[in-house]
Design a protein around this nucleic acid. Structure first.
Lengths: 122, 122
DNA sequence: ACAATACCCGAAAAAAGATTCGGTAGGGAT
DNA sequence: ATCCCTACCGAATCTTTTTTCGGGTATTGT
């Protein structure tokens, strides 16, 4: 298991929040679950840009921090389902706001990004 | 100059937002500027956990994406000041909400983190 | 029995991100 | 002249994160 070399600082709220949902795909996973894609294979299909492995890992972390919970663990056939806990639900407003912000400024940011890429390729 | 190897996807709002303020210190820098630490040296002293270099780099990125702007560029002695643009201001509510969330759940998350560290050190 | 699917996990490799180091350049004070 | 401060930047290095690859177990449909 990987252990950090640099000590983490969780002294301010922003850093705590970043710790919990700061991974590349964590918010996407929460979004997927929120939209009803609750089984691992469904989430993977929904977020097909990410590798299944990374989604598993992010699910594991979200589970560890109590943001989601796992159901039907010992039922066969395995029909694992994840759902948001109260803590997870409390993130939704933030998720929504971030999504709104990003969508609202999407064109502007994309345009800047294009410029950057062009200047690099020359 | 560094160019990414994996193509970026900015198709959903969350990914756009993550792109703009997803760095390790970006939100901290915005917070610092918002609190009145507007000169590079001041920001560095305020966020003394981060190296000055990384703060410069994050400032450059925030500048590039139009989240902050730079004043007094050609005045000597150099008294560079950064301030939030309208776009930057529009992030503040999110910043506040994230900080609130993190602060509210700080103890719980820290406790989980402690457990994780203990289990690793055994 | 066989193939396909779901779920989960370890470990190496690749990529991205952060940090350190050293340097430039100008201003101000002693 | 020397020293310290501010601002900035390139490049090597180190750390962290993500990805890829391969494996394992169990179930379902044919």
């Amino acid at each position: 298991m990987y252990t950090r070399k640099i000590k983490e600082n969780l002294d301010c709220g922003i850093l705590v929040a970043a710790k919990v949902f700061g991974g590349k795909w964590k918010l996407c996973v929460l979004d997927a679950i929120n939209r009803g894609f609750v089984r691992p294979a469904d989430i993977c299909r929904y977020i097909d840009e990410a590798s299944p492995r990374v989604i598993e890992m992010q699910l594991a972390e979200l589970l560890f921090f109590g943001v989601i919970e796992k159901c039907a663990e010992d039922v066969y056939p395995k029909k694992t389902e994840y759902k948001l806990t109260a803590l997870g639900e409390s993130i939704l407003p933030l998720l929504t706001q971030m999504d709104k912000w990003g969508t609202a400024h999407s064109e502007f940011i994309k345009e800047r990004q294009r410029e950057l890429e062009e200047s690099q390729s020359v």
